[in-house]
Computed example of a mutant assay.
Amino acid sequence: MALSQEERETFLAEPHVAALSVDAGEDGQRAPLTVPVWYQYTPGGDVWIMTGRDSRKARLIAKSGRFALMVDRTEPTIRYVSVEGTVEETVPATREQLTEMAARYLPAEKVAPYVDFAWEDHGPQVVIRMRPRRWLSSDLGSV
């Protein structure tokens, strides 16, 4: 059964690990790049991810101008939300954004050590904001 707009936006706002897909753009010679990512979303707003400024993912997103995310769960019911849209902006990431993202996924006591490590080790990062344009969603219940 399809989810209502409120249900799908609420589900997407939960801290799931998403599968990000973007066109690999190699004349049909490769499938889309699909990788797990952390993301941030507030209902009614844009989705944003953080990635290495010079990563393959960032280059492919810049080239295509769009990407898709899919999040799911299997308990207590089988539910998924997939969202696809256009890139609205790509900007240098801040330490505050890295802290916000880490706090979404990590226990409180692990956030500061992770941020210290990632800020020094991962190199320059960018935040890519995507405006959701197309949604697919379903809750299959407890099949």
Rank of each mutant, 00 (worst) to 15 (best):
R56P: 06
K57D: 01
K57C: 00
K57E: 03
K57L: 03
K57G: 04
A58C: 02
A58R: 01
A58F: 00
A58L: 03
A58W: 01
R59F: 03
R59L: 04
L60F: 07
L60W: 08
L60S: 07
L60Q: 09
L60A: 00
I61N: 04
I61C: 06
I61L: 13
A62R: 14
A62K: 04
A62L: 05
K63G: 13
S64W: 05
S64K: 11
S64A: 15
S64Q: 12
G65S: 06
R66K: 15
R66C: 09
R66S: 14
F67K: 03
F67C: 06
A68R: 00
A68C: 08
L69V: 03
L69M: 05
M70H: 10
M70P: 00
M70G: 13
M70K: 09
V71M: 07
V71R: 01
V71W: 03
D72S: 11
R73D: 05
T74F: 11
E75S: 13
E75I: 10
E75A: 14
E75F: 13
P76Q: 05
P76S: 12
P76C: 04
P76T: 02
T77F: 02
T77Q: 05
T77R: 05
T77N: 03
I78E: 09
R79D: 02
Y80A: 11
Y80H: 15
Y80W: 11
V81R: 08
V81Q: 13
V81A: 12
V81L: 13
S82G: 11
S82Y: 12
S82W: 09
V83M: 00
V83N: 00
V83H: 03
V83L: 02
E84G: 09
E84H: 04
E84I: 05
E84V: 05
E84Y: 01
E84N: 02
E84Q: 12
G85S: 00
G85R: 06
G85C: 00
T86A: 14
T86G: 09
T86M: 11
T86H: 09
T86D: 12
V87I: 12
V87A: 07
V87C: 10
V87E: 11
E88V: 15
E88L: 08
E88I: 12
E88M: 10
